[in-house]
């Protein structure tokens, strides 16, 4: 495997979470998951809730859950904009299950399509989190 790396950045509105050289990043694109190696062709994609995996220069890897966002890929740069990002290791399955059942009961009480849509979105995110934690 070559020693080439590219700059990987994970940015949330509140702060820059990760900024370091990486060998490989896997991104949950809205039209399918894709992997990025150095020299990838320029690509911009929106993300669906899922796990971003990146391998840093020492081959250590980290899984980060993102609740949607955008990815900007160039030959030597990958920038991911995520509104919510949390390390997969920090996800707690029991808490998430509690949250999910809470949301599902809230959904039944929700009135109006806008409200329902909002809960649906939240549920989708929590489900994706659960899936990531499993």
């Amino acid at each position: 495997m070559s020693n080439k790396t590219f700059q990987f950045e994970l940015v949330s509105p509140a702060e820059k979470l990760i900024s370091e050289p990486a060998r490989y990043v896997s991104v949950p694109g809205s039209e399918g998951e894709f992997g990025v190696l150095p020299g990838h062709s320029s690509l911009m994609s929106s993300l669906k809730p899922g796990v971003v995996t990146f391998k840093n220069a020492d081959n250590g890897h980290e899984d980060i859950f993102v609740a949607g966002g955008f990815a900007d890929v160039t030959a030597d740069n990958v920038t991911i904009l995520a509104e919510e990002a949390i390390s997969v290791a920090a996800l707690d399955k029991a808490d998430l299950e509690k949250e999910l059942s809470q949301l599902q009961s809230d959904l039944k009480l929700a009135e109006g399509t806008a409200d329902k849509k909002r809960f649906d979105l939240k549920i989708e995110v929590v489900k994706a989190k659960l899936h990531a934690a499993a």
């Binding site: 509105p13 509140a14 702060e15 820059k16 911009m44 920038t79």
Partner: peptide, 12 residues
């Protein structure tokens, strides 16, 4: 700290 996000957003 919010600057990088807003910059990247504008760029995109």
């Amino acid at each position: 700290r919010a600057q990088p996000y807003s910059n990247s957003m504008a760029e995109m």
